[in-house]
Amino acid sequence: MDGTAKILKYEFHNILRSKWMIGYAIFFLVITDGLFRFVGTDAKVILSLMNIILAVIPLASIIFGAMYVYHSREFIELLLSQPIGRKNIYWGIYCGLSLTLSAGFVAGTGLPFLLEGVIDAEYLSALMLLLTAGVLLTWIFTALAFWIAVRYEDKVKGIGAAMLIWMFFTVVYDGFILLVIYWFDDYPLEPAIIGMSLANPVDLARVMLLLKFNVSAMMGYTGAVFHQFFSASTGLGVSLSVLILWAVTPFLLGLRYFQKKDF
């Protein structure tokens, strides 16, 4: 793993030098700070942040990720000519990008909370869950991006596919859930719907966070069923494991492809 660490180090240098990474952190900083100024209470800030995070992080991670791999193609080819394993190279580049993206997000979002000094125990766990969800989403969509980028040689095709995947998870999939609810209205759907939301990382993160914030609308009968599943420690454990699985699977798929790929 020595090779991985070395690549990781250079990746960090490289990414931190470029300005867009700083911009990414500042974006979250400005949004969070703005919400504090205009929305007020910390519970509401977290709730509003949730909507932004659920849309922006997947989009940013998947587009950045894909572009990054395309841009680093020459660098990768150079590395391949060195006596370093392909596995190490892939690990190094993936971790370099996903860790800096997560760091940018955590710093940008967390700093205003620290500065406002509003972190009381009640919201601390909600904030932690929000940051965890954001970081996991970053890993998931960066892994997806890498997979796409090594899979498609053509940059335009790759970016297009990345956009489509983002659209699918944030919009199309929910439409599909809606259709299922409409079609199978006569059946007890709650377990099936819980299953379906586990299968989409964006939905999963959203439901997990919503129930954490105790949105009172979720307390009706249906809400109670969801609440029972997701807020129990097993439910939270299952949700987090599924999110991690969502990051690991595309990563391994991408890695396998990368190892066999003919450059």
Partner: peptide, 11 residues
């Protein structure tokens, strides 16, 4: 009522 799970979703 089951559609409640889509609360605050982008769609």
């Amino acid at each position: 009522p089951t559609a409640l799970i889509l609360l605050r979703s982008f769609l």
